[in-house]
């Protein structure tokens, strides 16, 4: 049975978003991921994924990891690096 820990769900969602924007030919693929997450994720989900990245970001693809770092900066939230 699939896991329902909400962080696992968020990691999976973020990676799926990363798969899509990662395949686009735009100059800044990270920006697409950041924009999507900002537009569609509730703040507590964003805080959770930022927190997860602060703790190493296990399971996230490199592009997504970069995006979440940028998300953390833009939202001003503290993501200790």
């Amino acid at each position: 049975m699939s896991s329902h820990s909400s962080v696992d769900t968020l990691v999976k969602m973020a990676n799926q978003i990363g798969d899509f924007f990662g395949s686009q030919k735009s100059v800044d693929r990270t920006a697409g991921i950041v924009d999507h997450i900002q537009k569609f994720w509730d703040p507590r989900m964003r805080a959770n994924i930022i927190d997860h990245v602060a703790h190493g970001g296990a399971g996230l693809n490199p592009l997504v990891l970069e995006a979440i770092h940028r998300l953390a900066e833009t939202t001003g939230a503290k993501a200790s690096k």
């Binding site: 329902h4 909400s6 769900t9 537009k39 569609f40 994720w41 509730d42 703040p43 507590r44 989900m45």
Partner: peptide
């Protein structure tokens, strides 16, 4: 001004207790 939770996220948040 912030987006809220989607149905699936509501269930996740419920299980998390928020």
């Amino acid at each position: 001004p912030e987006p809220g939770l989607r149905i699936n996220n509501m269930f996740d948040a419920a299980v998390d207790g928020t």
